[in-house]
Design a protein around this nucleic acid. Structure first.
Lengths: 207, 207, 207, 207
DNA sequence: TATGAATGAGGGTTCATTCAT
DNA sequence: CATGAATGAACCCTCATTCAT
């Protein structure tokens, strides 16, 4: 029984991995279900046992992959000794950018398919146990911060949108300039956005 | 001769309009060339007299439509009596946002299909005589400004990307909040971006 | 399992037969894949499960059909008691001619589509287990012959080309004369070709 | 008026030449009428003023081109001082082979499209004033010969078929051997064919 | 569960032919 | 005579989906 379960999981996993590879290399439009099952080495009918269609696969992949990226960044952050909120967020963004710069297929895939609504949902309702809850991390960071912040959701929205749209062409096409040249401006803007949402300084026991 | 020429223009125009309508309602992936020609009332072969494929149509449409929007904004600006660079740009952005809020199909269409590389090309190499040269307008605004500006291309890139990505979900889904609530933050960020690129004050005859 | 396999074979066979019928009546250029599948009573997609395109079908048909013809001739020869090489080859040619005279569609089809390169390949690399290896038979005949022969490949090439080109218009159009009137000349020429390639008489135990 | 006539002729000529170039390089199946008129620089409708379809063009071209080749060979022969019929025919064949070996596109074109019936018609009913009457030349050669010949039409048929089918793969693919290696066998066979049709020696005034 | 043969609608594209100019 | 815009039938081929095994 457990063996059967394991086998099923393996098959699903294999389909997801194969689909991801094809989506990031050929694009989702040019990837057929035939392509996926052939490469994964399973029968066509099997695909429909696990997924409704390829867009179903895409959604799962985006959730997993973006969650993974964020988790990596969050884990990196933990190892550091950073206190100020701005520094933390910039650190995370920097880590995410670096991961995406290393994996341009993934960047294309996510950029072309990610919408804010979906992102918000994916990141706050983890589909998989191993997926991280971004919202938790974010609000914990805010709690630990020295200041209070107004409209924190708008704040993170602006940051996410600015970052996600800005890095795409810089990483992929070095347009208008390479990602490393964009970073200083980007980080400066992030800091500004955060600062502009800043409220009162919190009164803590330490003060 | 002129009659034939006029007829050709009309036919091409008709195809473009029909394609636009279908692209904005059904999406480009779900729009077939058959759909377009059927709705436009021409034969299938006729499509290929004017366009290479539907992506060719898409590119032309994006160029025309985004140029049109910008032109409207620029014309509005002329009627105002605004002097400061920040104010001018915010005014233009505001006008563009308002136009897109009025035409959500267009917003979807442009957002899903516009890339910076293409935008840059389209807007600086107008395909049509009636299309405006955005670059000209931008650099003229810089010339007239009180200050000099560093890396003006990066500056406009950041603004364009931030605006284009931010307004999408706010206008279409009121997520995370409605566009009117986003605007103050957006404009504030724009002003900050501009300010952070500011160089020396220019020495003019008036000083 | 076996039932499925049998069904597949039947379907492929059906497509091949239908294609053959259409190719020989309408010609390959005027036969579309739609024609084939309609007549065979299968779906269009099914065609592509078995063949790459109609030229793939053509090649298979030529291989099978020409192999079949030759096999019939060879089998007939076995029943005879013919010793001399010239007589053997003339017998085979005669048998082939008679078969083609009986089936003019096949003659047209083969003549219009057979090239020496393809023939050589098809006949020496049988695609199907049931297809005969012409080369084997030929070289065995040479071995059993009383004499040795120079350039046997050129010899058979000349014979094949002369026969194949000569009989076409004689059989189909009685031009310049009917096939029966051509035969004496043809056989005479074959004998001459063979004789002109003759080398030494072999030394056998009987001598 | 004459100028108009000349212009018409020029246009037709241009279409024929262009079609020939395309037929010999891309093949007749892959050449569309659009291709022809585009390359020839005339309007599509113009094509239909001169030809019924592309097969009409093909037939004209085959007549002209094969007539031209034969005419060249016959003219070469005149310059020689050859008396014996066998030598004359071998000389002509050799000349034709050499011409085709120099122009492989033409060889493919003619081989793929020439049938004996058509050849006979084309060569005995010259379409153009400048086209040569092969039959005349042939029968004149027979008249001048030392012997009488039986079934001269079969004789030339056998020769033409054997030559035309034999040289194709030798010239184009060096299969089974190159054309120069085939020639000795070919010429030997031609001589044999002629000899085998030989009748009585003619009684002439010189004897 | 897993298979993969079969389907057939529908996609993009080409092209010979016509005909108003 | 010459043009070339317009046609639309017909082509090849793909592919998501089903279902008997």
């Amino acid at each position: 029984m457990s063996k059967v379960e394991a086998n099923k999981k393996k098959k699903k996993e294999s389909l997801l991995n194969t689909a991801f590879e094809l989506f990031t290399t050929k694009g989702i439009n040019d990837t057929s279900i035939s392509d996926i099952v052939n490469k994964a080495g399973v029968a066509k009918g099997t695909f429909y046992l696990y997924f409704r269609d390829k867009y179903d696969v895409r959604n799962l992949l985006i959730s997993h992959k973006s969650s993974k990226i964020f988790m990596n960044a969050a884990n990196e952050l933990k190892k550091q000794d950073i206190e100020v909120l701005e520094d933390k967020i910039v650190f995370i963004v920097d880590s995410i950018i670096n991961q995406l710069a290393e994996n341009k297929g993934l960047l294309t895939f996510i950029s072309k398919n990610l919408s804010w609504g979906f992102f918000k949902n994916a990141i706050t309702n983890p589909a998989d146990d191993r997926d991280v809850d971004f919202k938790d991390v974010y609000y914990k960071m805010l709690e630990e911060a020295e200041y209070e912040y107004n409209d924190p959701e708008i704040m993170i929205y602006m940051i996410v949108e600015m970052v996600s749209s800005t890095i795409y062409s810089a990483i992929l096409y070095n347009e208008p300039v390479g990602i490393e040249q964009i970073k200083p401006y980007l980080f400066q803007n992030i800091r500004f956005i955060i600062k502009s949402h800043r409220g009162n300084r919190k009164i803590t026991e330490n003060n």
